[in-house]
Amino acid sequence: MAESTPPAKIELREVRKSFGPKVVLDGINLTVAPGESLVIIGGSGTGKSVMLKCILGLLRPDSGKISVDGEDVTRLTGRAREKANRHFGMLFQGGALFDSLPVWENVAFGLTHGRGMARREAKGIAIEKLAAVGLNKDVGELRPSELSGGMQKRVGLARAIAADPDIIFFDEPTTGLDPIMADVINDLIVKTVKMVGATAVSITHDMISARKIADRVAMIHKGKIIWDGAAKDIDSSGNPYVDQFVHGRADGPIQMEVRR
């Protein structure tokens, strides 16, 4: 396929993934431009997380193609996968901090283990990144279990940006936080993504968060992208699915499967 526009940062073509008889991704097509912040919205169980895991190589799609910087990364394994993942930073929903390591070693992990940087040098960078998310250096010596939920999210964010990735993924960054802390995290996401000049892809069902961090919004429903447009057009999409989701109505074309 010939592209006249500059190469996409991330491109998904007809990506499909099923778990047994359950089809989760049913031909996803999506492009993310360099430097843009894309937010993918959609209800629980619509395939948002699975799509993210396919891009990261944590799951392998059944068919279709995923490319990063024009390079096919769909079926990479081993060393090649580790190399491709150096493009990425990821903030996990629950933080996914290593509870066996102090906070600063968590932040520095990608540098010390992924790239073999000396501990002393990595610690300096870790403290810098902690400062960037508003945590002082004493926090670096604590264990993740000693931190509150909001602080864990911040540490997760510091870890995601530690190796200056060019693409950062956010998995439900505001889930489980109080509204004020959610806003703090949203601000930090906007700020840090600009700071490292990265492309951002977030998945969320929190519309306040989506409005704040998105340049562009895509909605996923039943394993397909059903709407894709600029964040400012979200209220005038003319798409009944998007309208229902944005306004959080129980009635509409999306029927919750209450019983399976």
Partner: peptide, 12 residues
């Protein structure tokens, strides 16, 4: 708790 996934994303 997704820590194993986190290892992979940190190129480990």
């Amino acid at each position: 708790t997704e820590q194993i996934d986190a290892l992979t994303t940190l190129s480990t």
